[in-house]
Design a protein around this nucleic acid. Structure first.
Lengths: 147, 147
DNA sequence: AAAAAATAGTTGACAGCGTCAATCTTTTTG
DNA sequence: CAAAAAGATTGACGCTGTCAACTATTTTTT
C-alpha cells in the first residue's frame, strides 16, 4: 500500500466515524439519547442482570463514568437499578418498558443515514456494502481495544 | 429488507462510529488532538486562506464553536490566525510547520485500526473493503447534513 | 474467625467542549 | 451616508467524563 493510500484510508475512517457519530457535544442519536447512551442501553438490553460496570466496559468509560451514564438513563426513565440478590455490592440494571421501546423504535435515524449513504454510492451493490458493514462492525466490536 | 436487518444495520453503523471515533469526552485521536481537532486541521490544510467559519462548517459547529476550536489549535501551536488583507473581518487560518507535521504523521493510529479491523474480517478481500470504505466516506462527506 | 485485601458502586471537585446571545469591527447595500 | 449584513470573539451556561476519596460488601489470608 502506498503512503497516499494509507493516509486516504485514515481520512476515510475519520470521515466515517465523524459523520456517523454525534456531532458536537450534545449530538443526539435518537429521541433524547446521545450515542453513548444508546450504546449503553443496547448493552443493558443484551446483558442479563447487567452490572453498572459492564456498561462502562462496553463504552470504555471508567466506573464512575458508568455510574453517571446509568443514572442519566434512569432519570430519563429508560432503566432501573436493582441491588443484586446474590451480591449486595452489585446493581443490576434493567430496561424499563420505555427503554425497550426507545431501543426498538429508534433505528430510523441510522437507517435513513444508511439509505442516504447508499444513495451516494451507486457504483456499489447494496448487499455488498451491507456485508462489509456487518463484517466491519463485528470485527471492531470484538477487536482489541484501541490504544 | 426485513426489520431485523434494518435494526442490525443501525447497530452496525453505531458500532462503527463508536469504535472508530473518540471514546469518552477526552478521546484523543492522535498526539494530543481530538477527532474534531484533527478534522479541523485537515480542513485548514486543504483550504487556502481558510476562514475560521469554514472550519465550523466542516464540523457542523456554530461559528463560536469554530472560534473555540481554532483557538485551541493555535494554543497547541498547530495553526496561526492572520487577518485577511482583502477583508479585515476575516481571519485566515494557516497550518504551522508543527501542524503540518502532526497531520502528515498521524495516520498511524487509524492505519493500525484499519489493519486490526481487516485482520478480524478475513472473509473479505482487502481491496474490496477499501473500495467500500472509500465510497462510504465520499458519500457521507458530500451527503446532505443529517437531521 | 478476625483482619486484610479486593470489588462494586457513588460522589464532589474539576476540566474540556460546544451552544447561545450579546458585542465589536468591517464590509456591503440601498 | 445610514442601515443591514457578515466574520469573529467572549461570558455565561450546561453537559459530560475523569480522578480520587469514600462506603459497603465480599473474598482471601493467616
Amino acid at each position: 500500500m502506498s503512503g497516499a493510500v494509507i493516509s486516504d484510508i485514515s481520512r476515510c475512517l475519520i470521515e466515517i466515524a465523524w459523520h456517523l457519530g454525534p456531532k458536537g457535544i450534545n449530538g443526539e442519536c435518537c429521541e433524547n439519547l446521545t450515542m453513548p447512551e444508546f450504546i449503553a442501553l443496547d448493552k443493558i438490553f443484551t446483558t442479563p442482570n447487567c452490572p453498572v460496570q459492564d456498561v462502562g466496559y462496553s463504552l470504555k468509560f471508567t466506573k464512575s463514568g458508568a455510574t453517571r451514564i446509568v443514572n442519566r438513563l434512569e432519570k430519563k426513565g429508560y432503566v432501573n437499578k436493582i441491588r443484586s440478590m446474590d451480591d449486595a455490592r452489585v446493581c443490576c440494571v434493567k430496561l424499563t418498558k420505555k427503554g425497550l421501546r426507545v431501543l426498538e423504535s429508534t433505528d430510523a435515524r441510522y437507517l435513513k443515514q444508511f439509505e442516504d449513504m447508499i444513495a451516494g454510492m451507486p457504483e456499489q451493490s447494496v448487499s455488498h456494502v451491507i456485508q462489509v458493514i456487518f463484517a466491519m462492525a463485528k470485527s471492531l466490536k470484538n477487536g482489541v481495544p484501541i490504544v
